[in-house]
């Protein structure tokens, strides 16, 4: 019996499928068509690697955060400030993904953390395999916190488990308070939401109360940080949140 799909079971024919044409199982001689039941998640391959990543991280005492946002929401700057704040207190590592260049990795250097850039070239998101290859080096560097700065994209990264312990959804105030309604998947899956660029509020019509209301509709009870990496406002709460994972 095949251990992948249990094909020792009798074949069964199902006719209740969507499709624009009737499916005729009789294809003429010789033999009948066969239906093999699989019931396998599409992303099973990625998920298996992700589960392995998570086990590896647990074994080495590393907490992994998957930071997801639209491009230009301020992920890199908030990471710059975070690494500066945690330097000498919590050993950190960053894996940062972009289609091209190592510009983000270079911005994050010299802040006491192990930093590595992944250029995905075509892919609009990181996948578990990307992270799997780098985890041994992260562990060797003695990191306790691993930040994965995903490719700037509010859609695809939500679907691809990287083996993280938490997803963090970032939303800058320049994006409009109704973003969570328009891109609900990531906001419903994130452990916390971080509003960024709060220093720009005086120049915008961004309605914070509405933003919180919309976030609550998509993800009741999720904690929302209000931050400005530029001025430092609200960052202490974010650092405190991170501290708890290593205490």
């Amino acid at each position: 019996m095949c251990k992948t799909c249990g094909c020792g079971r009798p074949a069964k024919h199902s006719h209740g499928m969507t499709g624009s044409h009737a499916h005729d199982h009789d294809h003429g001689a010789p033999g009948h068509s066969k239906v093999l039941t699989l019931e396998r998640k599409v992303l099973a391959g990625n998920d298996a690697i992700a589960a392995g990543n998570r086990r590896f991280a647990d074994k080495h005492g590393i907490t992994v955060l998957n930071m997801i946002s639209a491009p230009g929401s301020g992920k890199t700057l908030i990471l710059e400030r975070t690494l500066e704040a945690l330097k000498g207190r919590i050993p950190c590592a960053v894996i940062t993904g972009d289609l091209e260049t190592d510009r983000d990795a270079r911005r994050l250097q010299n802040r006491g953390a192990w930093v590595k850039q992944i250029e995905t070239h075509q892919s609009c998101h990181l996948s578990a395999a990307h992270i799997h290859d780098l985890l041994p080096a992260v562990a060797k560097a003695g990191a306790r916190l691993l930040f994965i700065e995903n490719v700037g994209n509010l859609v695809c990264p939500a679907a691809f488990d990287l083996g993280e312990h938490f997803k963090v959804a970032l939303l800058s105030v320049t994006e409009g308070e109704d973003k969570p309604l328009k891109y609900p998947t990531i906001f419903s899956l994130a452990a916390v939401v971080v509003l960024t660029k709060m220093d720009l509020l005086p120049h915008l019509d961004f309605d914070i109360a509405k933003a919180r209301q919309y976030i609550r509709k998509i993800h009741p009870g999720v904690f929302v940080f209000e931050t400005s990496a530029r001025t430092g406002s609200g960052m202490a709460a974010w650092f405190d949140y991170l501290n708890q994972f290593t205490s």
């Binding site: 199902s14 499916h23 068509s33 019931e39 998947t185 509709k217």
Partner: peptide, 30 residues
Amino acid sequence: PFLVCPTCGSDNVQVLSGRDMVIRSIEFGS
């Protein structure tokens, strides 16, 4: 995309289905 109960309006809900993509079966021709 609002995860609230349409009956009572509560947002204290647990997702039972709808999150996944699953390959249910494969049909082979002769």
